[in-house]
Design a binder for these strands. Structure first.
Ligand SMILES: [Mn+2]
Ligand SMILES: [Mn+2]
Ligand SMILES: [Zn+2]
Ligand SMILES: [Zn+2]
Lengths: 147, 147
DNA sequence: CAACTAATTTAGAATTATTCTAAAAAATAT
DNA sequence: ATATTTTTTAGAATAATTCTAAATTAGTTG
């Protein structure tokens, strides 16, 4: 079996597992998202990729699909940048480096950070998720000695 | 001296300290933001409050002012909710509870959370800020015993 | 398969938050 | 006062996202 076929199988199986019909669009998007290593994509980015690969799919469907995948638990939505959401194919416990001024995100393994002494969730609520975002800026090459 | 006068003085002094001209609009917004206890506001919210208090100010000026205050270090911008920024009058080190499905934020004192074993910032970058967001959901009243 | 029903996709309009533009107004400096 | 610089503003523009309602497609049943 070719790699392409394997990716198709995997995508089909993934949709079946979460109870979503394996439509042409969803299969194509699932392949783009889950074929290679983990990634962080915006809706526009993914839509662009699909079009480049000659997969005809509307932007509305990309949004619908990303939200369906998120609800199904095979994607995770990240809010990090004002005015744009990212979707993360890595739904295991982990945190993020964010390079300010860019759109780049890098994973930090879940064991790589410990969040200690979390206060209890307020009465009537429970913790849905803990997000740690480490915002990075370029470090100045070298500080001039002050005059 | 009345409380009102004291708030005006304080606002004027705050603007002077960061080198922003004490215009009518900036003074009014500074009073709304910094008079009482710490708060988390969106631009629209603050604009609404100003209008209710008969302070005539445009929404564009509210945005300009919030960004200027942020650059000056007397506000901090929080990205938590897709499609809307909050501005935090508490610029000391602290983290947040966020009540999903609402727009409510609650501070967690900086000492209340410890982030341990942070990996080093990648080469050429340095940590600008570490944000910890604890996303809360309503806890179910009581789970029915499974049948 | 054919017919049916329910789910999905889509184009395009609408909405929302935010930013931009360029002209008027206000603040400061001379 | 006059001049210079900064600020404000209305309104247009932009960008991401959501909505609507009609067309298409998938799964199901006879
Ligand atoms: Mn969403
Ligand atoms: Mn901003
Ligand atoms: Zn990630
Ligand atoms: Zn806060």
């Amino acid at each position: 079996m070719t790699d392409k076929q394997k990716a198709s199988e995997a995508a089909r199986e993934r949709l079946r597992a979460v109870g979503l019909r394996p439509t042409r669009q969803r299969l194509a998007l699932a392949k783009l998202l889950f074929a290679g290593p983990h990634r962080h994509v915006s809706a526009e980015q993914l839509h662009g990729e699909a079009l480049r690969k000659k997969v005809r799919v509307s932007l509305a469907t990309v949004y619908n699909t990303l939200h369906q995948f998120t609800e199904a638990g095979i994607l995770r939505e990240l809010v990090i940048d004002p005015g744009r959401s990212y979707f993360d194919t890595n739904v295991t416990h982990h945190h993020h480096f964010f390079f300010e001024g860019s759109t780049r995100l890098r994973d930090i393994p879940g064991e790589g950070v410990e969040v200690k002494r979390l206060p209890a969730a307020p009465e009537g609520t429970e913790v849905a998720r803990v997000d740690v975002i480490i915002r990075l800026k370029d470090s100045p090459k070298r500080r001039k000695r002050s005059s």
